[in-house]
């Protein structure tokens, strides 16, 4: 188990390191000058002022020096200072990471709470109308883009029924109930798409495990088909379900880009979007690293959960 953990951890760190180099290079290779943008409105791009600021920000040094400085500081937990606000990037990240995690958690909750029963239903009632309907619902969920289901949710619950806020964010401390009600539609928008994935995999893997000997044995002992499925097949069928959550964690994270824009949610993705529009390199780099780190962490957790459910995974590592 320890060896397995070590192996996964080192490969995760390697991925993160490669991502960090890529992030740095991509941000620097792109045209557009943050200094001109900062001074642009006020000074009309006076060359002396531009040179001074470039020097202050260390942008006049060689790419390699800039990178090694950045990487060294990163290792010490220093993400640099935002060009726009002059505040440490880390502060912004710490503020926004919980908000994006909240969306992801909400989405996952929706996906599992709706996807599992849907998958079970369609596996159990295979060949019947209710089974076919559950399958169709899951394909629909899977095919509806996040922003399309998001817009439809806003139209139904925000515009017509007016029961939920159509967008916005309220800090938990200000008004907990409102905070949670603001969270409902974005979570649904992210979760419905993922629900389709979860339901499909649950169905396929349930059907697979139902053919196993031990399930047949349980049925021979007199358990009804449904009970045998829930009691014996389901726990084993969970392994691929957990695996798909890991494989598709990127989609979940990617969904926050659209959802944060659609619902005006001040999370990591919206920080990244606004920073890339103003060429705020430290913030772009910091938020990308944070996003990739979250992603890698989720994958790692999923790996561990999988090995917990299925010892064979450990053996193959």
């Amino acid at each position: 188990m320890l060896r397995f953990l070590g192996h996964r951890l080192s490969s995760a760190l390697l991925t993160l390191a490669i991502a960090a180099v890529a992030v740095f290079l991509v941000a620097r290779m792109i045209p557009g000058d943050p200094v001109m943008i900062m001074l642009g409105e006020a000074t009309g791009g006076d060359p002396a002022a531009v040179a001074r600021m470039r020097n202050e920000l260390g942008l006049d040094r060689s790419l390699f020096v800039q990178f090694s400085n950045w990487a060294m500081r990163l290792l010490q937990g220093d993400f640099g200072v935002s060009i726009r606000s002059g505040e440490p990037v880390l502060d912004d990240l710490l503020l926004r990471i919980p908000r994006s995690l909240e969306l992801i958690a909400g989405g996952l909750l929706v996906a599992v709470l709706l996807g599992l029963p849907l998958g079970i239903l369609s596996a159990r009632n295979r060949g019947r109308l209710s089974g076919a309907i559950s399958s169709i619902v899951s394909v629909i969920g899977f095919s509806a883009p996040v922003f399309v289901s998001g817009v439809i949710l806003v139209v139904v619950f925000g515009v017509w029924l007016q029961v939920l806020p159509s967008s916005g964010y309220v800090p938990f401390a200000d008004d907990p109930l409102l905070h949670l009600s603001c969270l409902v539609l974005p979570s649904l928008a992210i979760g419905l798409n993922f629900m389709g994935v979860v339901a499909r995999v649950t169905r396929a893997s349930l059907i697979d495990t139902m053919d196993n000997d031990y399930v047949a044995l349980a049925r021979a002992k007199g358990l009804s088909r449904g009970r045998a499925m829930i009691r014996h097949a389901l726990p084993n069928a969970m392994v691929p379900v957990i695996a798909i959550i890991g494989i598709r964690a990127g989609n979940l994270l990617g969904g926050t880009v659209i959802v944060e824009a659609l619902f005006d949610w001040p999370g990591l993705s919206s920080l990244l979007v606004s920073a890339s529009f103003s060429r705020d390199y430290p913030v772009i780099q910091g938020s990308l690293i944070a996003i990739f780190a979250i992603f890698i962490l989720i994958s790692l957790l999923i790996d561990l959960a999988q090995s917990f459910f299925d010892p064979r995974v450990r053996a193959t590592a």
């Binding site: 502060d91 710490l94 503020l95 919980p98 909240e102 800090p171 938990f172 401390a173």
Partner: peptide
């Protein structure tokens, strides 16, 4: 502020 965010999660 950051704490508030965390509290929100715990509250959840």
């Amino acid at each position: 502020f950051a704490l508030t965010g965390l509290t929100a999660l715990t509250g959840l």
